[in-house]
Amino acid sequence: MKKRIWIVGGSSGIGLELVKKWLQEGMYVITSARKASSTKELLTLKQIYEEQLQIVDIDVTSIASVKKAVPQAWKRFEGIDIWFYNAAVYEVMSTEEWDVEHFEAMMQINYMGAVRVMSELLPYFERKGEGRWIWNASLSSYFGLPLGGGYSAPKAALLNLAESLQPELNVKGIELQVINHGFVKTRLTQKNSFDMPELMTPEEAAENIIRATKKPYRFEIHFPFKLSTFLQVLRLIPYRISLALTKKMLPKDIS
């Protein structure tokens, strides 16, 4: 039986590539974003995959929007097997450039958005008694890096929440899975002025995700290997060493 997948944050980047690839595999896909129903790429895909693709608008910062979208998404294919949370925003900020509104946006979308959708969606999965939730986090959730704390802090919160919920959801028949990946060439990472090791295209990231989710269940999917290994080590070694290393990552114009 083909899976029914709901991607929240599926109008660009990795999310859009996942929509394309899952449709090509014959899956039934509901894709959502704030302006999903007016996104050119999704409308083009809808013409090609009329029966397989459904589009539902959602603003994850609004509980009213979430309450409206969740039952709509569930009904489109008479249920959902996989919920994939991919919505995210990203801003690079030094202490001199701090903008509280950017911090709030990243927390509201990267973390609280998942909480809002989860709260409304959980009763449906509980009645179904099975399913999988996949949350797209980030390797930055392992350790806070210079200029990126506004992004990595909510991602770390998302990972911590997933660790807390996994045992409880597991006994309900729900497999909770997190994806911690490295740098992907999207409109978000275009804001970075620093070198991004092992930079991937959205297509490469989506292929990694799909390949990993087809394997037997494990809580975390992480890639690429070198960067994930480095950041795992960074969080294990003493702070006097790890913070000395991250200090070297600061741009030269910051003293």
Rank of each mutant, 00 (worst) to 15 (best):
M1I: 09
G9V: 02
S11I: 13
S11T: 11
S12C: 10
S12E: 11
G13D: 06
G13P: 04
I14H: 03
I14Q: 03
G15K: 08
E17R: 05
E17V: 07
L18C: 06
K21S: 10
W22I: 08
Q24E: 10
Q24T: 04
Q24V: 07
E25C: 06
E25M: 12
I30Y: 02
T31Y: 13
R34W: 09
T39F: 15
L43S: 11
Y49N: 00
Y49K: 00
E50H: 15
E51Q: 10
L53P: 04
Q54N: 04
Q54S: 10
D57Y: 00
D59Q: 03
T61A: 08
S62F: 01
K68T: 09
K68I: 07
P71H: 11
Q72C: 12
A73E: 05
A73T: 12
W74D: 01
Y85N: 12
N86L: 15
V89C: 07
Y90T: 02
E91G: 07
V92L: 06
S94M: 01
D99N: 10
V100Q: 15
V100L: 14
H102E: 15
F103M: 12
I109M: 01
Y111H: 11
Y111L: 06
G113N: 10
A114S: 13
V115R: 13
E120A: 04
E120Y: 08
K128M: 05
K128H: 07
G131N: 07
W133Y: 09
W133G: 01
N136W: 05
S141Q: 02
P146F: 02
P146A: 03
L147Y: 07
G148E: 12
G148L: 05
G148Y: 05
Y151C: 09
A156P: 01
A157S: 15
L158K: 12
L158S: 13
P167L: 15
N170A: 14
V171Q: 14
I174R: 03
I174G: 03
L176G: 04
N180L: 14
H181L: 12
K185Y: 06
K185Q: 11
T186S: 14
T189R: 13
T189D: 11
Q190D: 10
K191M: 11
F194R: 15
D195P: 12
M196R: 10
P197N: 08
P197W: 02
M200N: 00
P202Q: 06
E203W: 03
A205G: 03
A205T: 00
A206V: 07
A206N: 04
N208K: 04
N208I: 00
I209P: 07
I210T: 09
K215Y: 09
F219P: 04
I221Q: 05
P224H: 04
K226G: 09
S228L: 04
T229W: 08
F230Q: 15
Q232S: 06
V233S: 00
L236H: 15
I241E: 12
I241W: 14
L243C: 05
L243E: 05
L245E: 15
L245H: 14
M249L: 15
M249E: 13
P251S: 15
K252N: 13
K252F: 12
D253A: 10
I254K: 13
